[in-house]
């Protein structure tokens, strides 16, 4: 690992100021960033830890919306009861020790194509709140490891409208514990959403045909006959594009059945 300066501010304003440097980078749980630094795939001059900023931690629910501070850990989200499908998603990330450090902000800032939270955020129609603006999930995830965040922009919270029904179905890649394919479905006042992670070379995406079918009949049977084109799906030693495309159908049906 290359050397870097380290700062651990107590307030968001201090963090924003510290991140104004071009070669500064935010550190949250470090569960992705530390392995990356160790492989010398990143070389920040300064790391700015967000873990001591109280304003970025914690959860609150009001008016049908669950707000989660960006530096809230997966373990903390797994324990909340306002949005059970999201609790289950968070409780299925990695292992207990990773969940005690990893954060929702770090996960969606990183936007790994096999990560779980991008599916939960897109599949819920959540809003990503930063120190500068609010970004709808549909505009936030822009590609593989790509997001709408600008340089130095910090995610402060994510607002989830709590749907009537929702579930996440994950097919584990057993070695990494990430999703080989994961599907998050929700049915709320703005309709049905189906978000797929782990499968596409473009990162998380919405499966529009499934959403349309489920809008008129929210049941696993409504998905009968629908399939995803393997073109553009990830192919690696864990599974080819055909296999992943097939799994999307399977996991979507499981998620709908689990959502009830």
């Amino acid at each position: 690992m290359y050397a870097f300066e380290f700062e651990r501010p107590r307030t968001l304003d201090e963090a924003v100021a510290a991140l104004a440097d071009d070669d500064a980078q935010a550190l949250a749980g470090g569960q992705t960033l530390i392995p990356t630094l160790r492989q010398r795939l990143a070389m920040p001059g300064k790391l700015v830890s967000l873990t001591a900023i109280d304003a970025l931690r914690g959860l609150s629910a009001s008016g049908g919306v669950l707000t989660i501070g960006a530096a809230t850990t997966h373990a903390e989200v797994a324990q909340q009861t306002d949005y059970p499908a999201l609790a289950k998603l968070a409780g299925g990330i990695g292992d207990p020790h990773v969940r005690n450090r990893g954060t929702i902000g770090g996960s969606i800032a990183n936007n790994d194509p096999s990560a779980c939270y991008p599916a939960g955020v897109l599949g819920s129609g959540a809003t990503v709140v930063t120190n500068r603006r609010e970004i709808a999930a549909d505009d936030y995830f822009t590609g593989l490891f790509e997001t709408a965040l600008d340089e130095g922009e910090i995610i402060t919270a994510v607002n989830f409208p709590i749907p009537d029904k929702a579930a996440y179905a994950k097919f584990d890649q057993p070695a990494s514990r990430f999703a080989l394919v994961g599907v998050f479905v929700s049915k709320g006042k703005d309709g049905v959403r189906v978000a797929v992670t782990g499968a596409s070379e473009g990162g998380v995406f919405r499966w529009a045909e499934a959403e349309a079918a489920l809008a008129s009949d929210f049941s696993a049977g409504a998905l009968e006959g629908l399939s995803v084109d393997p073109e553009g799906m990830i192919g690696d030693i864990h599974g080819g594009p055909d296999y992943r495309a097939h799994l999307i159908g399977v996991m979507t049906r499981r998620a709908v059945a689990a959502a009830g």
Partner: peptide, 10 residues
């Protein structure tokens, strides 16, 4: 926590 995946200063 996994102590190899956390900085001492944290």
């Amino acid at each position: 926590v996994k102590s190899c995946n956390m900085f001492a200063l944290e």
